[in-house]
Simulated assay, not measured.
Amino acid sequence: MSDDDRFTAFVGERLLASGPRRDVLLALKTHHDAGGGRALVFSDATGRQVDFDLRGTPEEVVARAEARKKAGPGRPKLGVVCREVSLLPRHWEWLEQQPNGISAALRRLVDDARKREPDREQARRVRDAAGRFMWSMAGDLPGFEEASRALYAGDGKRLRTLVKAWPKDVRAHVLTLADEATRLESPQPPQRPANP
């Protein structure tokens, strides 16, 4: 399962559910139908808040979310999204000379950069997700700014100290994401071949 399929839901400072999309949706639906308080749902991949339509039966809620995921933005078959890009004239000139057009050249450049350091790129994305989550859930908590600096500096020890007084579930989620980023950045020791 990809990180894009993992979500975390909070009611106030309390963790409601965390895990695969379906599990979180079912917990949200149960909470909603029981008249529970407003829940905030975050994508674990991006740290951004997401909304789900909780009308109907649990099966309808899940089916609607899955259909929305499959449809995706932009050109349906490719998932292409149009955005504006600002470049200098020399960049446009170079791109216009590339085979298969400007969009294909940009996609190749991005894919090549992602392949060079996949773990480092993934670590940056996880750290950014932790930062977005922190901003939403802990932006007004004591030590937020210093904790944010520690997160982006990769200083796990200082981060743990700074978030110690934060609500337990918020603290735990921030540290889980920060630890994942650190794990991705740490070089893996080489595997020794098994003795024949």
Rank of each mutant, 00 (worst) to 15 (best):
D3E: 14
R6G: 13
R6A: 15
T8Q: 05
T8G: 04
A9M: 00
V11E: 07
E13G: 12
E13R: 15
A17W: 00
A17K: 01
P20Q: 04
D33A: 11
L40P: 04
F42H: 13
S43D: 05
S43W: 00
R48Y: 00
Q49P: 11
Q49V: 13
V50H: 06
D51P: 11
D53W: 03
V61Y: 00
V62H: 14
A65C: 01
G72N: 05
P76D: 01
W92A: 06
E93M: 06
E93I: 07
L95W: 03
P99D: 12
G101C: 08
A104M: 05
A104W: 04
R108E: 14
P118K: 08
R120T: 13
E121A: 12
A123S: 06
R127K: 08
D128P: 02
D128R: 07
A130D: 08
R132I: 14
M134H: 08
A138E: 10
G139A: 04
P142H: 04
E145D: 06
R149Y: 08
L151H: 05
G156K: 02
L159D: 01
T161C: 12
L162G: 02
K164N: 07
A165S: 14
K168Q: 05
D169E: 05
A172H: 05
H173G: 09
L177M: 08
A181Q: 06
T182K: 11
R183W: 09
P189D: 04
P189V: 10
P193G: 01
A194T: 15
